[in-house]
Protein backbone atom coordinates (compact mmCIF):
# COMPACT_ATOMS: atom_id res chain seq x y z
CA UNK A 1 0.00 0.00 0.00
CA UNK A 2 1.41 3.38 -1.02
CA UNK A 3 1.25 6.34 1.27
CA UNK A 4 -1.17 8.30 -0.87
CA UNK A 5 -1.83 10.91 1.81
CA UNK A 6 1.90 11.75 1.81
CA UNK A 7 1.78 12.10 -1.99
CA UNK A 8 -1.11 14.55 -1.75
CA UNK A 9 0.77 16.55 0.90
CA UNK A 10 3.81 16.69 -1.40
CA UNK A 11 1.64 17.69 -4.36
CA UNK A 12 0.28 20.53 -2.20
CA UNK A 13 3.89 21.73 -1.90
CA UNK A 14 4.21 21.70 -5.70
CA UNK A 15 6.17 18.42 -5.91
CA UNK A 16 5.94 17.25 -9.54
CA UNK A 17 7.33 13.78 -8.83
CA UNK A 18 4.63 13.12 -6.25
CA UNK A 19 2.11 14.36 -8.82
CA UNK A 20 3.47 11.88 -11.35
CA UNK A 21 3.12 9.02 -8.86
CA UNK A 22 -0.43 10.04 -8.07
CA UNK A 23 -1.24 10.36 -11.77
CA UNK A 24 0.13 6.93 -12.68
CA UNK A 25 -1.71 5.36 -9.78
CA UNK A 26 -5.07 7.03 -10.44
CA UNK A 27 -5.35 7.76 -14.17
CA UNK A 28 -6.53 4.22 -15.09
CA UNK A 29 -9.16 4.31 -12.34
CA UNK A 30 -10.38 7.78 -13.26
CA UNK A 31 -10.54 6.77 -16.92
CA UNK A 32 -12.77 3.78 -16.14
CA UNK A 33 -14.80 5.85 -13.74
CA UNK A 34 -15.37 8.56 -16.36
CA UNK A 35 -16.28 5.93 -18.97
CA UNK A 36 -19.15 4.81 -16.77
CA UNK A 37 -20.58 8.33 -17.01
CA UNK A 38 -19.68 9.18 -20.60
CA UNK A 39 -18.99 5.93 -22.47
CA UNK A 40 -16.68 7.85 -24.75
CA UNK A 41 -12.89 7.38 -24.57
CA UNK A 42 -11.97 10.86 -25.87
CA UNK A 43 -14.19 12.63 -23.38
CA UNK A 44 -13.17 10.26 -20.57
CA UNK A 45 -9.51 11.18 -21.17
CA UNK A 46 -10.48 14.82 -20.94
CA UNK A 47 -12.04 14.10 -17.54
CA UNK A 48 -8.81 12.42 -16.38
CA UNK A 49 -6.88 15.53 -17.34
CA UNK A 50 -9.33 17.98 -15.76
CA UNK A 51 -9.50 15.90 -12.59
CA UNK A 52 -5.74 15.66 -12.16
CA UNK A 53 -5.31 19.39 -12.79
CA UNK A 54 -7.93 20.06 -10.12
CA UNK A 55 -6.01 17.70 -7.79
CA UNK A 56 -2.82 19.66 -8.49
CA UNK A 57 -4.54 22.95 -7.76
CA UNK A 58 -6.58 21.92 -4.72
CA UNK A 59 -4.26 19.44 -2.98
CA UNK A 60 -3.92 21.98 -0.18
CA UNK A 61 -7.63 21.69 0.55
CA UNK A 62 -7.60 17.90 0.90
CA UNK A 63 -9.03 16.87 4.29
CA UNK A 64 -7.26 13.84 5.64
CA UNK A 65 -10.35 12.34 7.24
CA UNK A 66 -11.56 11.27 3.79
CA UNK A 67 -9.79 8.64 1.68
CA UNK A 68 -7.61 9.94 -1.13
CA UNK A 69 -9.48 7.68 -3.56
CA UNK A 70 -12.94 8.98 -2.75
CA UNK A 71 -11.65 12.57 -2.72
CA UNK A 72 -10.23 12.14 -6.23
CA UNK A 73 -13.25 10.23 -7.55
CA UNK A 74 -15.53 12.89 -6.07
CA UNK A 75 -13.69 15.49 -8.17
CA UNK A 76 -13.83 13.16 -11.19
CA UNK A 77 -17.58 12.81 -10.73
CA UNK A 78 -18.07 16.59 -10.93
CA UNK A 79 -15.86 16.80 -14.01
CA UNK A 80 -17.71 13.91 -15.67
CA UNK A 81 -21.10 15.51 -14.95
CA UNK A 82 -19.84 18.85 -16.35
CA UNK A 83 -18.64 17.04 -19.44
CA UNK A 84 -21.95 15.18 -19.85
CA UNK A 85 -23.85 18.47 -19.59
CA UNK A 86 -21.58 20.12 -22.14
CA UNK A 87 -22.06 17.15 -24.47
CA UNK A 88 -25.81 17.56 -24.33
CA UNK A 89 -25.34 21.01 -25.76
CA UNK A 90 -23.11 19.64 -28.51
CA UNK A 91 -24.69 19.30 -31.92
CA UNK A 92 -25.82 15.73 -32.67
CA UNK A 93 -23.55 15.24 -35.71
CA UNK A 94 -20.47 15.97 -33.59
CA UNK A 95 -21.41 13.36 -31.01
CA UNK A 96 -21.99 10.71 -33.66
CA UNK A 97 -18.60 11.29 -35.21
CA UNK A 98 -16.84 10.86 -31.88
CA UNK A 99 -18.70 7.65 -31.13
CA UNK A 100 -17.89 6.15 -34.51
CA UNK A 101 -14.24 7.01 -34.19
CA UNK A 102 -14.14 5.23 -30.83
CA UNK A 103 -15.48 1.94 -32.18
CA UNK A 104 -13.58 2.01 -35.48
CA UNK A 105 -11.13 -0.75 -34.50
CA UNK A 106 -13.39 -3.84 -34.26
CA UNK A 107 -14.82 -5.67 -37.29
CA UNK A 108 -18.38 -4.79 -38.33
CA UNK A 109 -19.75 -8.19 -37.22
CA UNK A 110 -18.05 -7.93 -33.83
CA UNK A 111 -19.45 -4.48 -33.34
CA UNK A 112 -22.92 -5.54 -34.43
CA UNK A 113 -23.10 -8.53 -32.11
CA UNK A 114 -21.55 -7.03 -29.04
CA UNK A 115 -22.88 -3.55 -29.53
CA UNK A 116 -26.49 -4.60 -30.00
CA UNK A 117 -26.60 -6.29 -26.61
CA UNK A 118 -24.59 -3.50 -25.02
CA UNK A 119 -26.93 -1.03 -26.68
CA UNK A 120 -30.00 -2.78 -25.24
CA UNK A 121 -28.49 -2.79 -21.75
CA UNK A 122 -27.54 0.85 -22.15
CA UNK A 123 -31.02 1.82 -23.19
CA UNK A 124 -32.44 -0.07 -20.20
CA UNK A 125 -30.02 1.78 -17.91
CA UNK A 126 -31.08 5.05 -19.47
CA UNK A 127 -34.66 4.36 -18.45
CA UNK A 128 -33.62 4.42 -14.79
CA UNK A 129 -33.53 7.74 -12.93
CA UNK A 130 -30.09 9.41 -12.99
CA UNK A 131 -29.59 8.57 -9.30
CA UNK A 132 -30.39 4.91 -9.82
CA UNK A 133 -28.28 4.63 -12.97
CA UNK A 134 -25.34 6.24 -11.20
CA UNK A 135 -25.31 3.85 -8.24
CA UNK A 136 -25.61 0.84 -10.57
CA UNK A 137 -22.54 2.00 -12.51
CA UNK A 138 -20.59 2.79 -9.35
CA UNK A 139 -21.42 -0.54 -7.71
CA UNK A 140 -21.23 -2.92 -10.66
CA UNK A 141 -18.91 -1.31 -13.17
CA UNK A 142 -16.54 0.53 -10.82
CA UNK A 143 -16.88 -2.08 -8.06
CA UNK A 144 -16.91 0.46 -5.26
CA UNK A 145 -18.11 -0.35 -1.75
CA UNK A 146 -21.27 1.24 -0.37
CA UNK A 147 -19.23 3.40 1.99
CA UNK A 148 -17.00 4.64 -0.86
CA UNK A 149 -20.07 5.49 -2.94
CA UNK A 150 -21.65 7.27 0.02
CA UNK A 151 -18.51 9.42 0.35
CA UNK A 152 -18.37 10.19 -3.37
CA UNK A 153 -22.06 11.11 -3.54
CA UNK A 154 -21.96 12.74 -0.11
CA UNK A 155 -25.05 10.88 1.12
CA UNK A 156 -25.82 8.31 3.86
CA UNK A 157 -24.76 4.69 3.33
CA UNK A 158 -28.34 3.55 3.86
CA UNK A 159 -29.41 5.65 0.88
CA UNK A 160 -26.79 4.01 -1.33
CA UNK A 161 -27.88 0.51 -0.28
CA UNK A 162 -31.58 1.11 -0.81
CA UNK A 163 -30.96 2.86 -4.15
CA UNK A 164 -28.98 -0.11 -5.45
CA UNK A 165 -31.62 -2.50 -4.18
CA UNK A 166 -34.46 -0.73 -6.00
CA UNK A 167 -32.42 0.07 -9.10
CA UNK A 168 -31.58 -3.62 -9.43
CA UNK A 169 -35.26 -4.59 -9.25
CA UNK A 170 -36.16 -2.01 -11.92
CA UNK A 171 -33.29 -2.98 -14.18
CA UNK A 172 -34.13 -6.65 -13.85
CA UNK A 173 -37.67 -5.91 -14.96
CA UNK A 174 -36.51 -3.85 -17.94
CA UNK A 175 -33.94 -6.44 -19.00
CA UNK A 176 -36.39 -9.33 -18.66
CA UNK A 177 -38.89 -7.50 -20.88
CA UNK A 178 -36.14 -7.09 -23.48
CA UNK A 179 -35.14 -10.76 -23.19
CA UNK A 180 -31.65 -9.97 -21.85
CA UNK A 181 -32.34 -11.73 -18.59
CA UNK A 182 -34.25 -14.79 -17.48
Amino acid sequence: MHDEIAWVRQVAQGDERAFERLFRCYAPRILRFAMSYLNDPAHAEEVVQETMIAVWKSAKEYKEQSQVSTWILGIARNKALDCARARQREPEFLREKLDRRASARATPEQIAQRDSQAERVRSALEKLSPEHREVMMLAFYNELSYSEIAQILNCPEGTVKSRVYYAKEQLKKLLSEGGEML
Binding site: N39, L125, L175
Partner: peptide, 20 residues
Protein backbone atom coordinates in the same frame (compact mmCIF):
# COMPACT_ATOMS: atom_id res chain seq x y z
CA UNK B 1 -26.82 -7.77 -13.97
CA UNK B 2 -23.26 -6.92 -13.03
CA UNK B 3 -21.99 -8.66 -16.17
CA UNK B 4 -24.48 -6.81 -18.35
CA UNK B 5 -23.65 -3.44 -16.78
CA UNK B 6 -19.94 -4.04 -17.45
CA UNK B 7 -20.76 -5.00 -21.03
CA UNK B 8 -22.72 -1.79 -21.55
CA UNK B 9 -19.57 0.33 -21.29
CA UNK B 10 -17.03 0.37 -24.12
CA UNK B 11 -13.68 -1.09 -23.17
CA UNK B 12 -10.93 1.45 -22.66
CA UNK B 13 -7.20 1.14 -23.19
CA UNK B 14 -4.76 2.21 -20.49
CA UNK B 15 -4.31 5.98 -20.29
CA UNK B 16 -1.69 7.02 -22.84
CA UNK B 17 1.72 8.43 -22.03
CA UNK B 18 0.66 11.42 -24.07
CA UNK B 19 -2.23 12.07 -21.68
CA UNK B 20 0.26 12.22 -18.84
Amino acid sequence: IKELVVLSVKSVPEPSEELF
